[in-house]
Nucleic acid binder design. Structure first.
Lengths: 303, 303
DNA sequence: CAGCATGCATAAGGTCAGCTTATGCCGGAG
DNA sequence: CTCCGGCATAAGCTGACCTTATGCATGCTG
């Protein structure tokens, strides 16, 4: 296509300011450079154009006819650019796209997201729940929540909590049942979804050999959140990711009598391109999310 | 006034090309730089903006919504600038302003100017005849014809011919009168405008003491060109600047029997700012003027 | 009317933005 | 499976551009 034959754009910017002010000195002030630099750029532009743009009058400069003809167009063009970029910046800042694992979205993010929206009404949120690990290079996402080991290059990474699991039950059920002193005590209780691999792994990690999934009524619900609701309802012991239920523990809906284990040592992480760490909407989301997490921690610490 | 917060304009130019081509490589070709440079500039712009502009897809790049929103505006702005500058260039190239001494204008330039216009119909000529030495800094002139010693800094200078004077008369009169062997012979003839200082100076330079302006009928006409016409008409001997009348000498309207003297050693010069020596209209005028001068010389040499 | 203040031009010099070269990586096509 | 096309990245260089310092012209001012 067209090969535009434009003078150096920096010189155009300088010219526009100088023409607007009818003064090199004031243009220099506006542009944050020295008067000498303005003089230099104008001269450059004049030579490039082959025509003088200013007449040097004592104590002032005056546009030549050529300059007078050029000035409005340059102003208009720069205005156009400025407003386009301002709009883009604003627009780009107003939609936050979060790519998040479906589990995390359902168990942790969704219930809290409303508070973010309340806090930042100027930011529209688009949540993409996807199992695939997002590649910021080719997906239009601003931030993501991933699980893994937290070693991703070029990304800023904030650990959230471990990808782990532990038995959890309602405090009322615990009370009815009496204190649980050893993991083996759980074998007597109703396990929600006893076929879950996690139970197997957890009992094994606790040094208990005799666990047989088949030996328990099948209460599988298929979704951790449903299991959690069942547990909260006192219907049995579920094996859950504690990080998702810190608040429920705090307000007495769930109890975690034994430690959690992490199968892989993985964590959930908030990640985003390091280069964009200071973009307002990214910063807003990060700050809010870490605050939420802190709130979770504090309620647990108080407990 | 406003402080525009524009990203680097160079980056904008690159972005516009890349968006237009949907390819960094082709944008680089258009802009005459490497693909790496384009990549660099785009990245710069994205970081400055805080939002990605392209999605990096395999074997191609694709605009993000932000980029798609930005692209038309940048194209428009650059088009605007390009056409404005093209117009200015064209316009600035189409009017040639010549600042010229009135004498020179009347005696030499005016009669020849028509040929320049014929040769360059695309150039409109504006002639400013002024006694004041033009200062290209503060007057909107492209070229000037000055007299002086030819030492002006920053100006390109072409010597034209000396500011000198010599007696001239019509060949017919010369024939009627018989050969002039010595300047003193002129004392017998009708001198046009004998009160002219130049006569005095010239006779003195020739070593003739006895010249008395008052002793001659007053034929002063006040203008060299009118005197020349009178001389061509055979009405007497005029003291003229030979440079103005080379062609008349060639075609047999005037003869110069004795050498010219230059009072001050000055010349007429064509001058223009050295920086603008390659501007088409300046070059056109210079080339044409030097050609005209050459033609004068040649006719004289042939004579 | 001298002296001062203002505004632009110019010279010299330094620095960093921005370019190039070289290389790696990825994915699709043959 | 290998090659190729297209983008990213690293390293290094250079010249465009800016600054500092100074000069010059002129209008203002007491």
């Amino acid at each position: 296509m067209r090969h535009r034959d434009l003078p150096p754009l920096a010189a155009i910017r300088v010219f526009e300011a100088a023409a607007r002010h009818a003064s090199f000195t004031r243009a220099a002030e506006e542009l944050g450079m020295t008067q000498a630099a303005v003089s230099y750029q104008i001269k450059l532009l004049e030579e490039r154009l082959g025509a003088p743009l200013f007449l040097r009058r004592p104590r002032t400069v005056e546009l030549t006819p050529t300059g007078r003809q050029l000035a409005p167009a340059t102003s208009e063009a720069l205005d156009l650019l400025a407003s386009a970029f301002a709009a883009a910046r604003k627009d780009a800042g107003s939609v936050l796209t979060v790519s998040v694992l479906p589990t995390f979205a359902a168990h942790w993010l969704a219930p809290r997201m409303g508070r973010f929206q309340m806090k930042h009404p100027e930011i529209a949120v688009r949540i993409t729940a996807t199992r695939a690990v997002v590649d910021f290079r080719r997906e239009d996402a601003d931030v993501a929540i991933r699980s893994g080991l937290g070693e991703w290059e070029g990304l800023t990474v904030h650990p959230l909590f471990p990808v782990a699991f532990a038995p959890m039950l309602s405090p009322k059920l615990l009370e009815r049942h009496g204190p649980l002193t050893s993991p083996a005590d759980l074998l007597d209780m109703l396990l929600i979804d006893p076929g879950d691999r996690w139970w197997c792994l957890w009992f094994a990690a606790m040094g208990i050999e005799g666990f047989e999934p088949a030996g328990h009524p099948d209460a599988r619900m298929g979704d951790q959140h449903l299991e959690a609701r069942a547990a909260m309802g006192g219907h049995g012991v579920a094996i859950l990711t504690p990080g998702f239920y810190r608040q429920e523990v705090e307000i007495g809906l769930l109890a975690q009598p034994f430690p959690a284990i992490s199968e892989t040592g993985q964590n959930y992480f908030l990640v985003y391109p390091a280069a964009r760490r200071n973009v307002p909407k990214v910063r807003a989301f990060r700050d809010w999310l870490l605050d939420e997490l802190e709130a979770d921690e504090q309620t647990r610490d108080k407990a």
